[in-house]
């Protein structure tokens, strides 16, 4: 099993406040890794490091290494557009742009300079199908994406992330703003896509983590407490504190 990404001793400070204290974690290819832990433990901060979304924040200081296919993404002269094409992101709140579904999904491709209308058409359809939203949008491709339901919007966002054929998709609590049925649909979508993509997902829903992930990493106070195969983490974690957290107890 190859690791498509590797974080090595990643430390991050917002000004004087160190939010990540040295996180090392491998992300196996074509697997879904769930990042779990109490609010404020640094999950989103860590996730954003993986495609350099933190770069623009003032007074931020990041050390350590993050390798994508063996190469450090924090190296000088890295092409950010190319990185974000390889490592896409889906956020907690569905964030489709206020224009048609078609243009939402085509957006990344256009940014990447793709002009071939036929290729774009094909990718839009494929991506919407992969995100399991094709049936609901194929007759409405020109409808404003924001007019769809929350769950549909989130799947449009997933389709948008997939359109550029990323290697890795980062998801930050992708279902926490959705109702249980829409959440279940997103989960199912992710399960179906696991063979094609590597997912790294922050989630507060532990049952969701146990259902969809292959690997779980448990963070607390900016530290990686424990990580391992999902089954092991949920049946026999190595640390008592992990078991406590998984059973809804803190500290």
């Amino acid at each position: 099993m190859t690791n498509i990404m590797e974080a090595q001793n990643v430390k991050l400070s917002y000004g004087k406040f160190e939010a990540l204290h040295g996180i090392s974690l491998n992300f196996p290819e074509k697997q879904l890794t769930a990042l779990i832990g109490p609010s404020g433990c640094g999950k989103s901060t860590f996730l954003r490091c993986l495609n350099r979304m933190n770069d623009d924040i003032d007074n931020i200081n990041i050390t350590g290494k993050i390798l994508l296919e063996g190469k450090d993404i924090y190296r000088a002269k890295l092409d950010l557009v190319a990185l974000r094409k390889k490592v896409g992101m889906v956020f907690q709140q569905p964030t489709p742009f206020p224009f048609p579904v078609y243009d939402n999904v085509a957006y990344g491709l256009r940014v990447a300079g793709v002009k071939d209308k036929q290729l774009i058409d094909q990718r839009v359809e494929e991506s919407l199908k992969q995100a399991a939203i094709w049936d609901e949008t194929k007759d409405n491709l020109q409808r404003n994406a924001q007019e769809f339901s929350g769950g549909q919007q989130q799947r449009i966002c997933i389709a948008r992330a997939l359109a550029v054929r990323p290697e890795v998709v980062l998801l930050d609590e992708p279902t926490s703003a959705l109702d249980p049925i829409s959440s279940a649909e997103i989960e199912e979508t992710l399960m179906g896509l696991k063979k094609k993509y590597t997912f790294i997902m922050v989630t507060h829903n532990l049952q969701q983590a146990s259902r969809v992930s292959d690997q779980v990493a448990f963070l607390m106070d900016g530290e990686l407490i424990e990580s391992g195969p999902t089954e092991q983490m949920f049946l026999a974690p190595k640390k008592e504190i992990t078991s406590n957290y998984l059973n809804g107890r803190f500290g």
Partner: peptide, 9 residues
Amino acid sequence: QQPVATDFR
């Protein structure tokens, strides 16, 4: 209670 990990065992 849907226990997991140690509690489940």
